[in-house]
């Protein structure tokens, strides 16, 4: 039983890492209806930029700010070159454009900073910590804390600031927002920049865990089932979805793995998400739309 709890806790904490990627996704989907497959590429780009700057002797916060600026520039570019010309196109077209975008960003990141693996040491030990008789990774606790702070910042941004209100207006009804004089282009840019910031935070944590390398951009594939379970439009859902995926994936690996063979974490979240979908076709927290004809 203790072992079960330990696995569960480990899984839940790992799930927080998935949530981090999923949150960036949700932000963009809410504000622009774009299913942004390039979120993973953005995580890679941010982490690679940060670590390369840091390795060139720029202090931590300096590198952090410079990376943030580069994410802002990326957001500006994406809005200009991809989103603006594709306005009013079917969502599926925008999705495919972000597939193309992920290729561009990945290629660009590696063209600029090379494709070798970088270690990233954030100074948090990965030693297990004993909490109430269970062994819990310190690093995972730290990551969970960071995610908590991030969600707090985002909810303040969404609920207390003027930008937040505009964002929610756009998320609710683009056309109405346009009609009251909200500049969609600016909102999109802000949202992509914020998603870039979330991507940077996710990139640092994931990078510290796995090393900064190309496979970081594949975390998007982990985030997808998280979104399905949590719903595309809810930050809270992204957290809960992440926890569910993280926990069940670890439990399945431990208890199911020996029966049917290892390495099931690649597809297990998808099958889980599929089962969820068959019961609730729009996720736990997603709005169920009534079809009007």
């Amino acid at each position: 039983m203790d072992f079960f709890l330990e696995v569960l806790t480990g899984g839940l904490l790992a799930g927080v890492m998935y949530s981090l990627v999923a949150i960036g996704f949700v932000l963009i989907y809410k504000a622009s209806g774009v299913f942004n497959f390039a979120q993973g590429a953005m995580v890679l780009f941010a982490a690679l930029t940060f670590v390369s700057l840091w390795e060139h002797g720029i202090p931590f916060w300096g590198a952090f700010v410079m990376t943030l600026l580069s994410m802002l520039a990326l957001a500006w570019g994406v809005e200009r070159v991809v989103l603006r010309p594709l306005v009013n196109r079917p969502p599926i077209t925008l999705f495919m454009a972000t597939l193309g975008l992920s290729y561009v960003i990945e290629g660009l990141a590696q063209l600029l900073w090379g494709s070798q693996v970088h270690g990233l040491e954030l100074g948090i030990s990965d030693e297990p910590l004993e909490v109430g008789g269970m062994l819990v990774s310190q690093f995972d606790l730290f990551a969970a804390g960071v995610a908590g702070v991030l969600v707090l910042i985002l909810s303040l941004l969404f609920n207390k600031t003027r930008i937040g209100i505009t964002l929610r207006a756009v998320a609710d009804d683009q056309l109405a927002a346009l009609a009251v004089g909200i500049r969609l282009e600016r909102i999109w840019m802000i949202v992509w920049a914020v998603a870039g910031f979330v991507g940077l935070v996710a990139g640092l944590l994931w990078g510290a865990r796995l090393g900064v390398q190309f496979s970081l951009s594949l975390v998007v594939l982990k985030a997808l089932p998280v979104l399905i379970i949590g719903g595309f439009t809810s930050v809270g859902g992204a957290i809960v979805g992440g926890l569910i995926i993280g926990a069940s994936e670890k439990l399945a690996e431990i208890y199911l793995g020996p029966l049917i063979g290892g390495g099931i974490e690649n597809w297990f979240p998808y099958v889980l998400a599929l089962l969820f979908l068959l019961v609730r076709p729009s996720g736990i927290f997603g709005e169920r739309a009534i079809e009007r004809v």
Binding site: V82, M96, G100, Y103, V104, E106, G107
Partner: peptide, 23 residues
């Protein structure tokens, strides 16, 4: 190695270009 990255960028850019100009 860089050529491969360049190729990736060109492919990605072409996808976006086609979606915009000639879906």
């Amino acid at each position: 190695g860089q050529l491969e990255n360049l190729q990736k960028i060109i492919f990605g850019a072409l996808i976006i270009f086609f979606l915009i100009k000639e879906p």
